[in-house]
Design a binder for these strands. Structure first.
Lengths: 118, 118
DNA sequence: TCAACGTTTCAAGGATTATTGAAATATGGA
DNA sequence: TCCATATTTCAATAATCCTTGAAACGTTGA
């Protein structure tokens, strides 16, 4: 991920409704959620949710796909992973202090972590 | 880190000059950098750098301390770590896909990582 | 084909954020 | 004390972002 994309992603996450959307979509997994359901849960108008979903899609953090009348939005796990990686990269150069807590969290998905550490 | 603080931190990182500042401070480590040096490197005016430094301090991502005539700014590694942790937390609940790449990066600071994993 | 549903687009307005230059503040040395 | 340095604050303007409601679009079932 380059700096330009990171800037857009941080901007996307810096708004309450959008951060809420991303967190819901991450939890809802591969099924994703329809725009209408997202609007309902987030308690904002359809046109407003559409505005924010568009912004999030532009950032690459979520993707959309039409399913009959609904449009289903899904979290882009790869993009989220790349953003975390971007945040971590500089620090690892000379500052393990930052990575330590992050590594602790990474450890929560132990299978992947152990694999990577070999 | 709660959601409110994360929102502010993402907002702080969503601006080109500010992201640049954070990356420089992370690289410059515990020595930090004086406001003037930051302004020079970032090629922005003193008053503008002051505006952005204030915003970054509000987010908690950097700290300041006066050193004679200069004011030295330093990256707050703990806060950066907490932000990464915030980004990772939800996903680890059910989605190791995101953590795997992050764990790979975390592995680069092996000493700290192994410690945390015990 | 028509009506209903789910969603997006658009234009207008309001709100927030960024930039600028001038003036103010704090510090240290002559 | 006075001056130079390093930085911040302030007010004004410019730029960007968010919200709103009305209208348009694509899809489905009658």
């Amino acid at each position: 991920m380059d700096q330009r994309q990171a800037l857009i992603a941080f901007g996307a996450l810096s708004q309450e409704t959008r951060l809420h959307i991303v967190r819901m979509l991450v939890v809802s997994g591969l099924d994703g959620m329809a725009a209408g359901s997202i609007a309902e849960k987030a308690e904002v108008s359809p046109s407003n949710i559409s505005f924010h979903l568009k912004e999030l899609e532009r950032s690459g953090l979520i993707t959309q796909q039409r399913e009959s009348r609904s449009i289903i939005y899904t979290a882009n796990y790869e993009a989220l992973g790349r953003l975390i990686r971007f945040l971590m990269e500089d620090c690892c150069g000379g500052n393990p202090e930052i990575c330590a807590p992050a590594a602790a969290v990474a450890a929560c998905c132990a299978p992947a972590t152990k694999e990577e550490l070999q």
